[in-house]
Amino acid sequence: MNTLPKTVKIVEVGPRDGLQNEKENVSAEAKIQLVDMLSAAGFANIEAASFVSPKWVPQMATSREVMDKITRRAGTIYSALTPNMQGFEAALAAKADEVVIFGSASEAFSQKNINCSIAESIARFEPVAAAAKANGLRLRGSISCSFGCPYQGEVPLESVADVVRRMRDLGCDEIDIADTIGVSTARKTQAVMETAAREFHLDRIAGHFHDTYGQALANIYASLEVGVSIFHSSVSGLGGCPYAKGATGNVATEDVVYLLHGLGIETGIDLDKVVDAGLFIMGQLGRKGNSRAGNALAAKRAG
Protein backbone atom coordinates (compact mmCIF):
# COMPACT_ATOMS: atom_id res chain seq x y z
CA MET A 1 0.00 0.00 0.00
CA ASN A 2 1.23 3.49 -0.89
CA THR A 3 2.12 5.77 2.00
CA LEU A 4 -0.58 8.43 2.25
CA PRO A 5 0.18 12.04 3.26
CA LYS A 6 0.13 12.61 7.03
CA THR A 7 -1.59 15.99 6.73
CA VAL A 8 -3.95 17.45 4.13
CA LYS A 9 -4.99 21.04 3.47
CA ILE A 10 -8.63 21.49 2.51
CA VAL A 11 -9.55 24.59 0.55
CA GLU A 12 -13.19 25.38 1.39
CA VAL A 13 -14.84 26.75 -1.76
CA GLY A 14 -18.48 26.85 -0.63
CA PRO A 15 -18.79 30.62 -0.14
CA ARG A 16 -17.65 31.28 -3.71
CA ASP A 17 -17.78 28.25 -6.01
CA GLY A 18 -20.61 26.75 -3.99
CA LEU A 19 -22.93 29.75 -3.91
CA GLN A 20 -22.19 31.47 -7.22
CA ASN A 21 -24.80 29.56 -9.21
CA GLU A 22 -27.60 29.69 -6.65
CA LYS A 23 -30.63 31.30 -8.27
CA GLU A 24 -32.06 32.67 -5.01
CA ASN A 25 -30.16 35.66 -3.70
CA VAL A 26 -28.13 34.84 -0.59
CA SER A 27 -27.69 37.92 1.59
CA ALA A 28 -24.28 39.37 2.37
CA GLU A 29 -25.03 38.77 6.05
CA ALA A 30 -25.58 35.05 5.45
CA LYS A 31 -22.37 34.80 3.41
CA ILE A 32 -20.43 36.60 6.14
CA GLN A 33 -21.83 34.26 8.80
CA LEU A 34 -20.99 31.24 6.63
CA VAL A 35 -17.37 32.34 6.18
CA ASP A 36 -17.07 33.07 9.91
CA MET A 37 -18.42 29.62 10.80
CA LEU A 38 -15.98 27.99 8.38
CA SER A 39 -13.11 30.05 9.83
CA ALA A 40 -14.07 28.84 13.30
CA ALA A 41 -14.04 25.24 12.00
CA GLY A 42 -10.30 25.60 11.35
CA PHE A 43 -9.88 25.84 7.56
CA ALA A 44 -6.46 27.01 6.41
CA ASN A 45 -7.87 28.40 3.17
CA ILE A 46 -11.37 29.70 2.34
CA GLU A 47 -12.44 30.88 -1.11
CA ALA A 48 -14.61 33.74 0.05
CA ALA A 49 -15.23 36.05 -2.91
CA SER A 50 -15.23 36.55 -6.65
CA PHE A 51 -14.51 39.89 -8.29
CA VAL A 52 -16.16 39.23 -11.62
CA SER A 53 -18.81 41.32 -13.33
CA PRO A 54 -22.11 41.16 -11.37
CA LYS A 55 -23.79 41.02 -14.78
CA TRP A 56 -22.32 37.53 -15.26
CA VAL A 57 -22.40 36.31 -11.66
CA PRO A 58 -25.02 38.34 -9.73
CA GLN A 59 -24.60 36.21 -6.58
CA MET A 60 -21.05 37.53 -6.15
CA ALA A 61 -22.03 41.22 -6.30
CA THR A 62 -21.66 41.46 -2.50
CA SER A 63 -18.04 40.20 -2.47
CA ARG A 64 -16.54 43.49 -1.27
CA GLU A 65 -18.98 43.72 1.64
CA VAL A 66 -18.30 40.10 2.57
CA MET A 67 -14.52 40.59 2.54
CA ASP A 68 -14.85 43.80 4.57
CA LYS A 69 -17.01 42.28 7.31
CA ILE A 70 -15.77 38.73 7.85
CA THR A 71 -13.86 37.99 11.05
CA ARG A 72 -10.46 36.90 9.82
CA ARG A 73 -8.82 34.04 11.62
CA ALA A 74 -5.05 34.27 12.00
CA GLY A 75 -3.38 31.76 9.70
CA THR A 76 -6.33 31.40 7.31
CA ILE A 77 -5.91 32.41 3.67
CA TYR A 78 -8.96 34.22 2.26
CA SER A 79 -9.04 33.87 -1.53
CA ALA A 80 -10.83 35.75 -4.29
CA LEU A 81 -11.35 34.91 -7.95
CA THR A 82 -9.91 37.61 -10.23
CA PRO A 83 -10.45 37.24 -14.00
CA ASN A 84 -8.75 40.51 -14.98
CA MET A 85 -6.97 43.60 -13.65
CA GLN A 86 -10.24 45.25 -12.64
CA GLY A 87 -11.01 42.17 -10.54
CA PHE A 88 -7.49 42.16 -9.15
CA GLU A 89 -7.69 45.80 -8.04
CA ALA A 90 -10.99 45.05 -6.28
CA ALA A 91 -9.48 42.00 -4.57
CA LEU A 92 -6.45 44.02 -3.47
CA ALA A 93 -8.69 46.75 -2.03
CA ALA A 94 -10.73 44.07 -0.23
CA LYS A 95 -7.52 42.70 1.35
CA ALA A 96 -7.65 39.24 -0.22
CA ASP A 97 -4.69 37.07 0.80
CA GLU A 98 -4.71 35.13 -2.44
CA VAL A 99 -6.01 35.78 -5.93
CA VAL A 100 -7.21 32.98 -8.18
CA ILE A 101 -6.88 32.93 -11.96
CA PHE A 102 -8.63 30.26 -13.98
CA GLY A 103 -7.97 28.60 -17.31
CA SER A 104 -9.03 25.35 -18.94
CA ALA A 105 -7.26 22.27 -20.24
CA SER A 106 -9.98 22.06 -22.89
CA GLU A 107 -9.86 24.44 -25.85
CA ALA A 108 -13.61 24.00 -26.47
CA PHE A 109 -14.48 24.79 -22.85
CA SER A 110 -12.22 27.85 -22.83
CA GLN A 111 -14.07 29.25 -25.85
CA LYS A 112 -17.51 28.55 -24.33
CA ASN A 113 -16.67 29.64 -20.78
CA ILE A 114 -14.48 32.73 -21.25
CA ASN A 115 -14.79 33.36 -25.01
CA CYS A 116 -11.13 32.98 -25.85
CA SER A 117 -8.47 30.38 -26.55
CA ILE A 118 -6.34 28.82 -23.80
CA ALA A 119 -3.31 30.83 -25.00
CA GLU A 120 -5.33 34.06 -24.99
CA SER A 121 -6.68 33.34 -21.50
CA ILE A 122 -3.16 32.85 -20.12
CA ALA A 123 -1.99 36.08 -21.81
CA ARG A 124 -4.86 37.94 -20.11
CA PHE A 125 -3.62 36.71 -16.76
CA GLU A 126 -0.03 37.90 -17.18
CA PRO A 127 -0.69 41.40 -15.75
CA VAL A 128 -2.79 39.94 -12.92
CA ALA A 129 0.00 37.50 -12.02
CA ALA A 130 2.63 40.24 -12.13
CA ALA A 131 0.48 42.52 -9.95
CA ALA A 132 -0.13 39.75 -7.43
CA LYS A 133 3.61 39.16 -7.09
CA ALA A 134 4.36 42.90 -6.89
CA ASN A 135 1.84 43.24 -4.04
CA GLY A 136 3.00 40.17 -2.14
CA LEU A 137 -0.21 38.20 -2.67
CA ARG A 138 -0.41 34.46 -3.18
CA LEU A 139 -1.33 33.45 -6.72
CA ARG A 140 -3.36 30.32 -7.42
CA GLY A 141 -4.13 28.91 -10.84
CA SER A 142 -7.17 26.74 -11.47
CA ILE A 143 -7.37 24.45 -14.50
CA SER A 144 -10.92 23.39 -15.33
CA CYS A 145 -11.89 20.33 -17.40
CA SER A 146 -8.60 18.56 -16.67
CA PHE A 147 -10.32 15.16 -16.74
CA GLY A 148 -13.00 15.64 -19.39
CA CYS A 149 -15.00 18.33 -21.17
CA PRO A 150 -18.75 18.67 -21.84
CA TYR A 151 -18.01 19.90 -25.38
CA GLN A 152 -14.97 17.98 -26.62
CA GLY A 153 -15.13 14.88 -24.40
CA GLU A 154 -11.65 13.47 -23.74
CA VAL A 155 -8.92 15.90 -22.71
CA PRO A 156 -5.41 14.69 -23.61
CA LEU A 157 -2.84 14.45 -20.81
CA GLU A 158 -0.52 16.72 -22.80
CA SER A 159 -3.19 19.46 -22.75
CA VAL A 160 -3.19 19.34 -18.95
CA ALA A 161 0.62 19.37 -18.84
CA ASP A 162 0.70 22.37 -21.20
CA VAL A 163 -1.60 24.49 -19.05
CA VAL A 164 0.22 23.45 -15.85
CA ARG A 165 3.47 24.68 -17.44
CA ARG A 166 1.83 27.96 -18.44
CA MET A 167 0.41 28.49 -14.93
CA ARG A 168 3.77 27.59 -13.40
CA ASP A 169 5.54 30.11 -15.62
CA LEU A 170 3.11 32.83 -14.50
CA GLY A 171 4.43 32.24 -10.96
CA CYS A 172 1.48 30.37 -9.44
CA ASP A 173 2.07 29.25 -5.85
CA GLU A 174 -0.53 26.51 -6.14
CA ILE A 175 -2.29 24.90 -9.10
CA ASP A 176 -5.73 23.25 -8.95
CA ILE A 177 -6.45 20.33 -11.25
CA ALA A 178 -10.23 20.38 -11.60
CA ASP A 179 -12.78 17.77 -12.66
CA THR A 180 -15.37 20.39 -13.53
CA ILE A 181 -18.01 17.93 -14.72
CA GLY A 182 -17.16 15.07 -12.36
CA VAL A 183 -16.41 12.41 -14.99
CA SER A 184 -13.05 11.07 -13.80
CA THR A 185 -12.40 7.68 -12.22
CA ALA A 186 -9.54 6.57 -9.97
CA ARG A 187 -6.97 5.33 -12.51
CA LYS A 188 -7.51 8.30 -14.81
CA THR A 189 -7.22 10.64 -11.85
CA GLN A 190 -3.83 9.16 -10.97
CA ALA A 191 -2.59 9.50 -14.55
CA VAL A 192 -3.61 13.17 -14.69
CA MET A 193 -2.09 13.97 -11.28
CA GLU A 194 1.17 12.20 -12.17
CA THR A 195 1.28 14.19 -15.42
CA ALA A 196 0.75 17.48 -13.55
CA ALA A 197 3.42 16.53 -11.00
CA ARG A 198 6.02 16.19 -13.77
CA GLU A 199 5.54 19.91 -14.47
CA PHE A 200 4.97 21.36 -10.98
CA HIS A 201 5.67 20.65 -7.30
CA LEU A 202 3.48 17.77 -6.14
CA ASP A 203 2.99 19.34 -2.71
CA ARG A 204 1.47 22.43 -4.36
CA ILE A 205 -0.97 20.63 -6.65
CA ALA A 206 -4.60 20.52 -5.52
CA GLY A 207 -7.43 18.20 -6.54
CA HIS A 208 -10.81 19.83 -7.23
CA PHE A 209 -13.45 17.14 -7.77
CA HIS A 210 -17.14 17.33 -8.55
CA ASP A 211 -19.37 14.40 -7.62
CA THR A 212 -21.59 14.13 -10.71
CA TYR A 213 -20.99 10.37 -11.10
CA GLY A 214 -20.39 9.69 -7.42
CA GLN A 215 -16.63 9.25 -7.92
CA ALA A 216 -15.22 12.26 -6.05
CA LEU A 217 -14.16 10.45 -2.85
CA ALA A 218 -12.61 7.61 -4.87
CA ASN A 219 -10.72 10.19 -6.92
CA ILE A 220 -9.51 11.91 -3.76
CA TYR A 221 -8.24 8.60 -2.38
CA ALA A 222 -6.53 7.87 -5.72
CA SER A 223 -4.89 11.32 -5.55
CA LEU A 224 -3.72 10.69 -1.98
CA GLU A 225 -2.00 7.52 -3.20
CA VAL A 226 -0.05 9.62 -5.72
CA GLY A 227 0.92 12.05 -2.93
CA VAL A 228 -1.49 14.95 -3.52
CA SER A 229 -2.16 16.66 -0.18
CA ILE A 230 -4.42 19.63 -1.06
CA PHE A 231 -8.09 19.22 -1.94
CA HIS A 232 -10.99 21.55 -2.61
CA SER A 233 -14.45 20.87 -1.23
CA SER A 234 -17.67 22.70 -0.63
CA VAL A 235 -19.72 22.65 2.56
CA SER A 236 -22.86 20.50 2.04
CA GLY A 237 -21.75 19.79 -1.53
CA LEU A 238 -22.89 23.21 -2.77
CA GLY A 239 -22.10 24.23 -6.31
CA GLY A 240 -22.02 23.08 -9.89
CA CYS A 241 -21.00 24.48 -13.24
CA PRO A 242 -23.38 26.60 -15.32
CA TYR A 243 -21.59 25.55 -18.52
CA ALA A 244 -21.67 21.82 -17.81
CA LYS A 245 -25.12 20.29 -18.23
CA GLY A 246 -26.06 17.93 -15.40
CA ALA A 247 -22.89 18.63 -13.39
CA THR A 248 -23.71 18.44 -9.70
CA GLY A 249 -21.91 20.17 -6.89
CA ASN A 250 -18.39 20.02 -5.60
CA VAL A 251 -17.57 17.11 -3.34
CA ALA A 252 -19.01 17.81 0.13
CA THR A 253 -16.51 19.00 2.73
CA GLU A 254 -18.11 16.90 5.46
CA ASP A 255 -17.59 13.73 3.40
CA VAL A 256 -13.96 14.57 2.64
CA VAL A 257 -13.14 15.37 6.27
CA TYR A 258 -14.87 12.17 7.42
CA LEU A 259 -12.78 10.15 4.93
CA LEU A 260 -9.49 11.83 5.84
CA HIS A 261 -10.02 11.55 9.60
CA GLY A 262 -10.93 7.89 9.12
CA LEU A 263 -7.57 7.41 7.39
CA GLY A 264 -5.78 9.04 10.33
CA ILE A 265 -4.84 12.08 8.23
CA GLU A 266 -4.67 15.43 10.03
CA THR A 267 -6.70 18.31 8.61
CA GLY A 268 -6.92 20.73 11.53
CA ILE A 269 -10.68 20.87 10.91
CA ASP A 270 -13.48 20.38 13.45
CA LEU A 271 -16.02 18.22 11.60
CA ASP A 272 -18.88 19.10 13.99
CA LYS A 273 -18.40 22.79 13.21
CA VAL A 274 -18.46 22.06 9.48
CA VAL A 275 -21.76 20.23 9.98
CA ASP A 276 -23.06 23.34 11.78
CA ALA A 277 -22.00 25.54 8.86
CA GLY A 278 -23.69 23.19 6.42
CA LEU A 279 -26.94 23.17 8.39
CA PHE A 280 -26.84 26.97 8.56
CA ILE A 281 -26.34 27.63 4.84
CA MET A 282 -28.79 24.95 3.72
CA GLY A 283 -31.31 26.48 6.13
CA GLN A 284 -30.78 29.79 4.31
CA LEU A 285 -31.36 28.04 0.98
CA GLY A 286 -34.37 26.13 2.29
CA ARG A 287 -33.29 22.64 1.32
CA LYS A 288 -31.36 19.63 2.58
CA GLY A 289 -27.62 19.44 2.01
CA ASN A 290 -25.86 17.00 -0.34
CA SER A 291 -23.35 15.68 2.19
CA ARG A 292 -23.91 12.06 3.19
CA ALA A 293 -21.68 12.38 6.27
CA GLY A 294 -23.16 15.78 7.14
CA ASN A 295 -26.74 14.50 6.93
CA ALA A 296 -25.87 11.35 8.92
CA LEU A 297 -24.14 13.31 11.68
CA ALA A 298 -27.00 15.83 11.82
CA ALA A 299 -29.54 12.97 12.11
CA LYS A 300 -27.47 11.33 14.84
CA ARG A 301 -27.49 14.60 16.80
CA ALA A 302 -31.25 14.91 16.41
CA GLY A 303 -31.50 11.44 17.96
Rank of each mutant, 00 (worst) to 15 (best):
G141P: 06
S106K: 09
T189H: 04
V100G: 00
I220A: 10
E266I: 00
N115S: 10
I32H: 06
A302W: 06
K273A: 12
I46S: 10
Y213G: 00
T189K: 06
M37G: 12
N45K: 09
E225Q: 15
R165Y: 01
R292E: 05
M60N: 04
R204Y: 10
R165M: 06
P5Q: 13
C145Q: 12
N295A: 13
A61S: 15
A119I: 04
R168H: 15
S234D: 07
A28L: 11
R16K: 07
R166G: 01
L238R: 08
I205V: 13
K55N: 10
P15G: 07
Q59G: 00
V228N: 10
M67K: 07
P54Y: 03
S39Y: 08
P242R: 02
G42T: 12
I265P: 02
R204A: 13
I101M: 14
F209E: 03
L297A: 07
E12G: 02
T76M: 13
A131N: 01
G268P: 07
V251M: 04
T3Y: 02
V26N: 08
D162H: 11
G141W: 14
A216I: 06
M167A: 14
R292P: 00
V164K: 09
N250R: 10
L259T: 00
R187S: 14
Y213W: 11
I175D: 12
N45S: 14
A134H: 00
R287P: 04
D179C: 10
A247L: 12
N113H: 07
R138G: 06
G42H: 11
V26G: 08
N21L: 00
D17K: 07
I77N: 12
A244E: 12
T7S: 14
E158I: 06
V99N: 00
E22G: 02
R187Y: 09
G286H: 13
V235I: 15
G136S: 07
Q152S: 15
F231H: 06
R16N: 08
D203T: 14
I32D: 04
A218R: 05
S229W: 03
E22S: 01
E254A: 06
K273R: 15
G214S: 06
R301H: 14
R73Y: 03
T253C: 09
K31G: 00
D68H: 09
A74Q: 15
A40K: 10
Q111L: 15
D211I: 04
G286S: 13
A91D: 01
Q20W: 00
A216T: 05
E199M: 13
V8S: 03
G214W: 05
L260G: 01
S27P: 08
G303A: 14
F280E: 08
M85P: 02
F88C: 01
S104G: 14
E98H: 04
H201Y: 11
V164M: 11
I265T: 03
A129I: 11
G182R: 09
A302H: 14
H210T: 05
D36P: 01
T253Q: 06
A61D: 14
